[in-house]
Design a protein around this nucleic acid. Sequence first.
DNA 1: GTCTTTCATCGTAATAAAACGATGCGCTGT
DNA 2: ACAGCGCATCGTTTTATTACGATGAAAGAC
Lengths: 111, 111
Amino acid sequence: MKDASCTPATCAPPAKREPLPLGDEEQELADLAKAIAHPARVRILKVLSERNACVCGDIVLEIPLAQSTVSQHLKQLRDAGLIQGEIDGPRVCYCIDPAKLKRLKVLIAGL
Amino acid sequence: MKDASCTPATCAPPAKREPLPLGDEEQELADLAKAIAHPARVRILKVLSERNACVCGDIVLEIPLAQSTVSQHLKQLRDAGLIQGEIDGPRVCYCIDPAKLKRLKVLIAGL
DNA sequence: GTCTTTCATCGTAATAAAACGATGCGCTGT
DNA sequence: ACAGCGCATCGTTTTATTACGATGAAAGAC
């Protein structure tokens, strides 16, 4: 099974312009990718997705890490905008932000 | 525009089982995500994709970083399997590995 | 052969990420 | 009010990432 070997012939012409300073869209995708660049965070998203709704703090039960560590990962996902938390009495309910997740999918698909 | 607010009511039942030890697929996605979790690497993929073929070492010209740094980023993409390099005389031609990129897209889409 | 070009790698310094236990803060029961 | 639960944050250590200049190795030109 021969996959895309890149022969010099297939090479495209070099650039003429300056190296643009790493645009916003590149940064956006990089940030979103970084948010899921850890198996624990992938697991969190998967859990939030399987239980189609939030699933409060027993996300911790799904992940073989200390509570404080899981909380940190949740924060990263929250900072990236991929999930959001809603305070419900003593607990906090998390759920996926579908718009942001969609945005990630679009950016990835555009590669 | 009200987006997915997660009320406690929507919360799914808790888990019964043990915290599984962070599976292979989660790790795979995390690794691929990490590979693109930097704007320079996103840019590299974009360049390799726009010039539909390899574009050898003048990737460096497209990125406002030192040559050695770009080479490091290329290595990370190579280690992740997203790109591959082919030696062509004094230069090296890089191109996207479509299968691996597809794999990334599938995993992301599955979120 | 030597010189040059092209890229990778080494060595290093600065910054960020990951993990944990301990602490703190806001609720909800009693 | 007080105790307990649920979760976030603090403080710390360890490890990884990012970046650069300098050095090296391989191929082509002379």
